[in-house]
Amino acid sequence: MDTSDFISVLALAVSLLSAWISYRAYRYSVRVKEAESSLAFSRDKAEFLVRIDKARKYFDRLENRLKELLDRIIYGAEDIKRALVAEEQQLKSDLAYLEGCQRQVWSLTDEVYEMEQSALAHHKPRFLRLIEDDELFVSEANGRCDRAEELINKAEKNFTMFFL
């Protein structure tokens, strides 16, 4: 075996070692990229679940307020009930619609929790729009609650002044 054969074998060994190192570096970079992607997906999913939970709490606060106002009307004096029939019907209607919003937000929570990365990327804008539409309803319903509360307070005040 002469020098050129030895150099050729040595070059082949170095090439094989270089190819093995390159392959290992490639596999490592692929694993790191997958880990980063998985972490970003987990973070995005967690943030969206928090967003959904905030909406659910917003809906729950409105539900409590609607029930409180309805109780004030239902358990109030007959004169107050008669004066506030329209408000009672509106509050009941808002409560019925809100129950649908709450069912939807619980469904979204379950669905998002089970989603894979591509499904979340595909459905998140639509789900976010649904939540925002429901939050707009809640905002409008809160305005109706403010008006109903003023009318209830005025009716109760007039009722107590009438009997004093």
Rank of each mutant, 00 (worst) to 15 (best):
V105N: 01
L17I: 11
K154C: 13
R31H: 13
A96N: 15
F159S: 08
E34G: 00
E116N: 12
I52A: 02
N153H: 13
W106K: 12
E99I: 09
F48D: 05
T109K: 10
K57L: 15
D53I: 05
K54Q: 14
L120T: 01
F163Y: 07
Y58M: 06
L69A: 04
L164W: 11
E149G: 06
E149N: 08
S15Q: 08
R24K: 08
V138I: 06
E116I: 01
Y97N: 14
G76H: 01
L66T: 00
R147V: 13
L108S: 04
S15W: 10
S22Q: 07
T109Q: 15
W20V: 12
S22E: 09
K157F: 12
L12Y: 11
A77P: 07
C101I: 00
E78N: 08
D134M: 06
M115T: 05
Y113D: 12
E87F: 04
L70D: 06
N153S: 14
R72M: 09
A119F: 11
Q89V: 12
R126Y: 15
I152E: 04
G143N: 09
K92N: 12
A96T: 15
C101H: 12
I73V: 04
E116K: 11
S107A: 12
D71L: 12
K67T: 07
I74C: 04
R51V: 11
K33W: 05
R144P: 03
K154A: 06
R27C: 08
R61K: 09
C101E: 11
C101Y: 04
R61T: 13
L128I: 02
K33C: 09
A46F: 07
K154G: 04
D2E: 06
R147Q: 09
E111A: 14
E156N: 09
F59D: 00
L12E: 10
S37D: 09
Q90V: 11
R61P: 00
R72D: 07
I7G: 10
S118K: 12
D60S: 13
I74P: 08
D44A: 15
E34Q: 15
S42D: 15
A155T: 06
F6G: 00
L98A: 01
K124W: 03
K154M: 14
F127G: 01
T109D: 10
W20R: 11
F127C: 03
Q90K: 13
L84C: 01
V85A: 10
D110V: 10
T160F: 09
Y75D: 03
R144I: 02
L39H: 15
S139F: 08
S139K: 14
K81M: 05
R27M: 13
Y23P: 00
L66I: 03
I52Q: 02
A96S: 15
Y58R: 08
W20H: 07
V105W: 02
A35G: 05
L95P: 05
L84K: 04
E135Q: 14
P125K: 00
D79G: 15
Q104D: 09
T160K: 11
D53C: 06
K54N: 14
V30E: 03
P125H: 00
K157M: 13
V30Q: 05
R43Q: 14
Y75N: 05
E87V: 02
G143W: 05
R103T: 10
S37V: 03
H123C: 07
T3C: 03
E88R: 07
D133G: 01
I74D: 10
L84D: 00
W106I: 07
Y23M: 05
E149S: 07
D2I: 04
Y28M: 12
L69Q: 05
I21F: 14
E150C: 07
